[in-house]
Simulated assay, not measured.
Amino acid sequence: MDIEEYSWVKASDYRENILLALEEKPRTPKELAEMTEYYLSHVSNVLSDLNDHDLAECITPDRRKGRLWAATDKGRGIIEDLKR
């Protein structure tokens, strides 16, 4: 477990809940906003932060709308730690 990354995710309910929402399958920011009941702008900011930490990535970067985001291998490791 990367304790620094785990701690960084745990420090924010937004980061934790959005990362956990990416566990089952890739999702759009709109889907994530609906699932978590967060503002779309907050979801977008968190996804950008998760991307900067290599925990999530946009898997359809060429799309203008409906971009899909997924947890990276590192992100899936953090998800497993969060679920313990």
Results as ranks from 00 to 15, higher is better:
Val43Gly: 03
Glu57Asp: 07
Val46Glu: 04
Gly75Ser: 12
Ala33His: 03
Arg76Val: 02
Tyr14Leu: 13
Glu80Thr: 11
Trp69Tyr: 09
Lys25Arg: 15
Arg27Ser: 14
Pro29Phe: 06
Glu16Asp: 02
His42Tyr: 10
Leu32Phe: 08
Tyr6Gly: 10
His53Asp: 04
Asp54Trp: 01
Asp13His: 05
Val9Ala: 09
Asn51Ala: 06
Asp49Glu: 11
Ser7Glu: 04
Lys65Ala: 02
Thr60Lys: 00
Arg64Lys: 15
Val43Met: 07
Glu57Asn: 08
Val43Lys: 00
Pro26Ala: 12
Thr36Ile: 08
Arg67Tyr: 08
Ala21Gln: 08
Glu31Leu: 03
Arg27Cys: 13
Leu20His: 05
Asp13Leu: 05
Ser12Gln: 04
Ala71Ile: 08
Pro29Ser: 15
Ser41Arg: 11
Ala70Asn: 12
Ala71Cys: 09
Glu34Lys: 08
Val43Pro: 05
Tyr14Phe: 14
Glu5Trp: 01
Met1His: 05
Tyr39Cys: 13
Glu16Gln: 13
Leu47Ser: 04
Val9Ser: 11
Leu32Met: 13
Cys58Arg: 11
Arg76Thr: 02
Ile3Thr: 14
Leu22Arg: 02
Leu22Glu: 07
Arg64Leu: 15
Lys30Pro: 13
Arg63Val: 01
Glu80Ile: 03
Asn45Val: 08
Met35Ala: 11
Ile78His: 00
Leu50Trp: 01
Lys74Met: 09
Arg63Gln: 14
Tyr39Val: 09
Asp13Met: 08
Ala11Trp: 00
Lys30Tyr: 07
His42Gly: 06
Pro26His: 08
Thr28Met: 09
Ala56Pro: 00
His53Cys: 04
Asp81Cys: 03
Lys10Ala: 10
Val46Asp: 03
Tyr39Asn: 13
Glu80Arg: 07
Ala70Pro: 05
Lys10Asp: 02
Thr72Ala: 11
Tyr6Met: 15
Lys74Gln: 06
Arg67Phe: 05
Asp52Asn: 05
Tyr14Ser: 13
Leu22Cys: 13
Arg64Cys: 03
Glu23Ala: 15
Ala71Gln: 09
Ile59Gly: 01
Thr72Glu: 04
Arg64Tyr: 12
Arg15Tyr: 01
Ile3Gln: 13
Thr72Ser: 13
Leu40Trp: 10
Asp62Val: 03
Asp2Asn: 15
Glu80Asp: 11
Ala70Arg: 04
Lys74Phe: 00
Lys30Thr: 15
Asp73Val: 10
Lys10Val: 03
Asp62Pro: 00
Leu68Lys: 06
Ser12Cys: 04
Asn45His: 14
Arg76Tyr: 03
Ala33Ile: 07
Thr28Trp: 00
Arg76Ala: 07
Glu5His: 06
Pro26Glu: 05
Leu55Ala: 10
Asp81Trp: 00
Asp2Ala: 13
Asp13Ser: 11
Trp69Phe: 05
Val46Ile: 15
Tyr39Phe: 12
Glu4Tyr: 11
Thr36His: 03
